[in-house]
Amino acid sequence: MDYVLIIVIEMLRAISWLVLLASGLAIIFGMMRVINFAHGEFLMLGGYITIMSHNAGVNLWIAMLVLAPLCVGIFGILVERFIIRFLYGRILDSLLATWGLSLLMVGGVTLVFGNTVQGVSTPLGGVSIGAYQVPFYNFVLIGFAAVLMLAIWSVLKFTKAGLIARATMQNPDMAETLGIRTSWVYMATFGIGSAVTGLAGGLLAPLTGVVPSMGVNFVGQSFITVITGGASMIAGTLSASTLLGTISQGMTFLTGPVYGDAALLLTALVLLRVLPQGITGRIFKKSL
C-alpha cells in the first residue's frame, strides 16, 4: 500500500517537473509559435540568481519565488526588444538567434562564475510514509505545478489581459485592427514566459545545483513536452506532461535514468508521426 502511494507520488512529481520545465516555453510557443532555444539558459539564469542571492544572505524562498522570476522576466523582455522583435515572421531565424543567445549565455556565465557546480541544500527535510522517506520538497514542486497551471488558466479565462492574449493568439491581424498593440502583447508574453521559466529554474536549483551548462540537461525534456503538447498552453502542457512524465518515470523505474530521455523522444516521434501538430492539434483543439 505504502509502495503504491510512493509510486503515485513519484509519478506526480515527474509530471509536475515537466509542467514546471515546459510551461514557460509553452506560453511563448502558444502565443508566437516560436520555440525559445535559449530556454535551458533561462532556467540556468533563474537557478544562478536564486543561489547567488541566497549566498548573499537573501532568504531562499524570496530568492526562489520573487527574485528569480523577476530578473529572468526582465531579461526576457530585454531579449524580446533587442533580438526577437526583429525576427517576427522569420521563424527559422528566430530559432537560430535564440540558439546563438543560448551559446552566448553559456559562454558568458562561464566567464563570470567559472565552470563549477554551486548549490544549496534542499530545504524542508522529509516526510515518512510507512517505511519510506519522501522529501517534502516534492510536494512543493507538485503544488507549484498545480498553482501555476491554475494561475495561467484563470488569467487567460477571466482577465482583460487574458482576453487580449487569447485574441492575439487566435488572429493577430484582427486583434491589431481592433486596436490591440500586438507587439506589446508579444513583449509581455515573452516576459511572462521568461518569468515562469525563471521560477522553474529557481525551484530546481536546490535539487540539481547550478553550473553554466546545466540547461542542456533540461531542454530535451522541455522541448519534447511542448512540441508533443502542441499550441494550447494549458491543455497541451498538461496532457503532454502527464503522458511523457508517466513514460519517463516508468522507464526510470525499469532501467535507470539514462534511457528515460530516449524513451521520451521515441514516444514523441511516434506520436508526432500520427499527430503532427501535437496532441492539441487534434484532441482538445478548442481548449486553452
Binding site: 537560430l96 538567434a97 540558439w99 546563438g100 543567445l101 543560448s102 551559446l103 552566448l104 549565455m105 553559456v106 559562454g107 558568458g108 562561464t110 566567464l111
Partner: peptide, 8 residues
C-alpha cells in the same frame, strides 16, 4: 561558446 553564439 561565447564567440560562436555571438557570431550566430
Amino acid at each position: 561558446y561565447f564567440i560562436l553564439g555571438a557570431i550566430l
